[in-house]
Amino acid sequence: MRMSKIVRTITALIFWAVVVFGLYVVIHGHLTPGGGFQGGAVIASSTALFLVAFSKEEFLKKYKDAFLSLAESGGLTLFISTAFLGIGTTFFYNFIANSGGIFGNPVPFGVNNGDLNTGGTLPPMNMAVGLEVFGGISLILFFMFLGAYLKPFNKEESEVHKE
């Protein structure tokens, strides 16, 4: 099930670069193109790379599947609770924007240099959705990878498949 040594070495080199690029896309979601969904998909593609190159045991050494489902449900819960925090005005109200605290700097109109400390509730929501998409797509990939190596149900069927 493991691929050759060349593929494994290149994967070990590239894996963390892909993860760091996905984290960049998630964290800078309110300044540059991208956001939670795209960044989470990029991080999950690192999982696909790892699964193609290595085996199931080494993947389970890196991530427990309980961790992945915790990331997924925790991300969705964080997203909904961040939306509910602004319920004083409306659901999904951006209550941190322009307040001056963390993520609260105002932004001038027009083209300007980005400031990471802006955006109100957008950066926390981006991180929550990124966590959710990473966990969800990684779980789908992992279970489909396991399902691809399932044994046939009975003996005759496996004999038919061998021909």
Binding site: G29, H30, L31, P33, N94, G104, V107, G120, L122
Partner: peptide, 8 residues
């Protein structure tokens, strides 16, 4: 940009 304080 004024209401949400984000460039994107």
């Amino acid at each position: 940009q004024k209401e949400c304080a984000a460039n994107n």
